[in-house]
Nucleic acid binder design. Structure first.
Lengths: 129, 129
DNA sequence: TTAGCAAGTATACAAAAGGATAGTGTTGTT
DNA sequence: AACAACACTATCCTTTTGTATACTTGCTAA
């Protein structure tokens, strides 16, 4: 991506206006929420998980936040929710194609930052004030 | 990135442990904070900005959050802070090389999501419960 | 008919993030 | 002596986020 394209995208993102008036920034911010990302990562690892499985994998999440985050992911098309009306009921979650691309971008970002992490951690320890 | 590499990265990210014990996830989450991202975007657009300029560009941010976010970005090596001891004092902020790559990844993510945004917004309106 | 499971909901409360706004320190200008 | 400029700090208070945990629903098996 060259600088011109970058400036175009920054114009799209309407950087100097609040996110309530810029759906792109709003959609992005929702995706990059802490719990949301964690769920995308565990679904990337295990492919298909039931509600209780996700809860076990995302350590520390409460049922309330899990439901909320899963609903958001489903609503925004990143996750598919499948109900099997057995007894007891079974509900499975997995990434959609869109969700898988999102995962890829996330892991790509992580892949890039990994070599920098030791330095960053060291800086954090030394950084006063 | 193939599936094997993806699984390696997910192992690196230690997806099933809380971020306090995984510095990679912690560094990522810090970068992807709402205000932090906005500041990176405006610095990408304007290259060099003073404190009051950033405040003007990131609409709605309070001085408290601006200082906090700028310090975090500086601490983690994404932003350079330069003090000119004039009177009145002048302080300039700009992205480091690392920060510029981060901006690129962010804009790349945005670039990918943009075509999906209209559908997502429509889904959000229709999504009941 | 009582127990039990899965996938949530509901309620109460605690913690963290964030907004509004006044104050600080330094030095030149009036 | 008072004021202005700039880049923050400090304080108070509201809002949002999140936890803990009890409850619900629908059915089936003992």
């Amino acid at each position: 991506m060259n600088d011109k394209r970058m400036q175009e995208m920054l114009a799209n993102l309407d950087v100097e206006n609040p996110s309530e008036v810029c759906p792109i920034k709003d959609v992005l911010a929702t995706m990059l929420d802490k719990w949301t990302m964690m769920i995308v990562l565990v679904l990337g690892k295990h492919k298909v998980l039931r509600f209780a499985d996700v809860k076990r994998s995302v350590v520390g999440i409460s049922p309330k936040m899990l439901t909320k985050s899963l609903r958001t992911l489903e609503r925004d098309g990143h996750v598919k929710r499948t109900v099997y009306p057995e007894v007891p009921i079974r509900v499975e979650y997995n990434l959609t194609d869109q969700g898988s691309i999102f995962l890829k971008k996330l892991v790509d970002l992580a892949d890039w930052i990994v070599p920098h992490v030791p330095t960053i951690v060291k800086n954090r320890e030394e950084f006063i004030k």
